[in-house]
């Protein structure tokens, strides 16, 4: 594993140029260019603002703690987009990069890593849009706890890398993975507190006459590592409070475990890639 990580570090030049290439290629030929990295989340933010403030006001999600709702929802939606796109791209990475693995002497693990990082850069490019909206809605600015954000980002990065490696290796052998993943991500999205807050589900579960549904959901939320990652975003940016000191480090530890297992798994199947892609 140590070898694996140092390997990734050794290829940082390659990873860096591939991430750059990925970003350049994505917008090459479009008039808007990089502007799309800002425009996409901006337009999405506008749509959601209109939908959730005037057309459709989710009655139960309107707790006092999640106002203004578009800002709340966007706080979690942007990193989720990073996460979901990372896993989708990573699962495809070895197949689309098949030429490289087959024809060049090429470290295959670089490909899923590039998928995760390139989408991470997208997230970071979208962040200023969010902040501008933030200052429009809340002129008082951000709390100092926003400084915890790098830790949250790091946790998500490690988790995405681990899952990305596993998915990339599996998708080479079982192309069905890509379709299964697309559906799993949809379900996962709703089982992560993005369009609702975790506190809201917990409150439901703790009600005296609560049915088993919110209880099960609350349980699942607790076991979902993305819950705590998204929670981290909510706390450090939206609520401006200290991140959860117990849950986030545990999640980070779990993320590292996933990465170790993921790398081991990837390494184990590595030799089969050139023949299968």
């Amino acid at each position: 594993m140590k070898h694996g990580l140092s390997n990734l570090f050794r290829h940082r030049g390659l990873i860096q140029s591939l991430v750059t290439r990925e970003l350049k290629a994505r917008y090459r030929g479009s008039v808007g260019g990089y502007l799309w990295s800002f425009l996409n989340p901006l337009l999405l933010l506008l749509v959601y603002t209109i939908v959730f403030t005037t057309v459709f006001t989710p009655p139960r999600a309107q707790g006092a703690d999640i106002e203004p709702y578009p800002l709340f929802m966007f706080c979690g939606l942007l990193p989720w987009t990073w996460f979901a796109a990372s896993l989708t791209d990573a699962a495809n990475s070895l197949i689309t990069g098949g030429n490289l693995i087959k024809k060049l002497i090429f470290p295959a693990e670089v490909l899923p890593v590039v998928s995760v990082l390139a989408n991470g850069v997208h997230y970071l490019l979208g962040l200023p849009v969010y902040l501008i909206a933030w200052f429009i809605f809340k002129p008082q600015g951000l709390s100092v706890h926003v400084l915890w954000l790098p830790l949250v980002l790091f946790t998500q990065l490690i988790l995405s890398l681990g899952l990305g490696l596993i998915l990339a290796a599996l998708a080479v052998h079982f192309r069905d993975i890509r379709d299964i993943l697309a559906n799993t991500l949809t379900l996962w999205f709703f089982l992560t507190p993005i369009i609702y807050s975790r506190a809201f589900i917990q409150a439901l579960a703790e009600e005296e006459n609560a049915s088993w549904v919110p209880k099960v959901v609350a349980r699942v939320l607790d076991l979902n590592p993305m819950t705590h990652v998204i929670d981290g975003y909510h706390l450090s940016i939206f609520e401006g409070s200290l991140i959860n000191w117990k849950r986030l480090p545990v999640t980070l530890a779990v993320a590292f475990l996933v990465l170790i297992v993921g790398y081991w798994f990837f390494d184990r199947l590595r030799d089969s890639f050139p023949e299968e892609v």
């Binding site: 290629a25 090459r28 490289l100 060049l104």
Partner: peptide
């Protein structure tokens, strides 16, 4: 083995030379 195996069609020859060189 296969020439230009790592080239990306969308980006310029210049950028591809750099990336291909780094890949190699």
């Amino acid at each position: 083995i296969e020439l230009g195996a790592g080239f990306h069609p969308e980006i310029s020859g210049r950028e591809n030379v750099f990336i291909n060189g780094i890949m190699l």
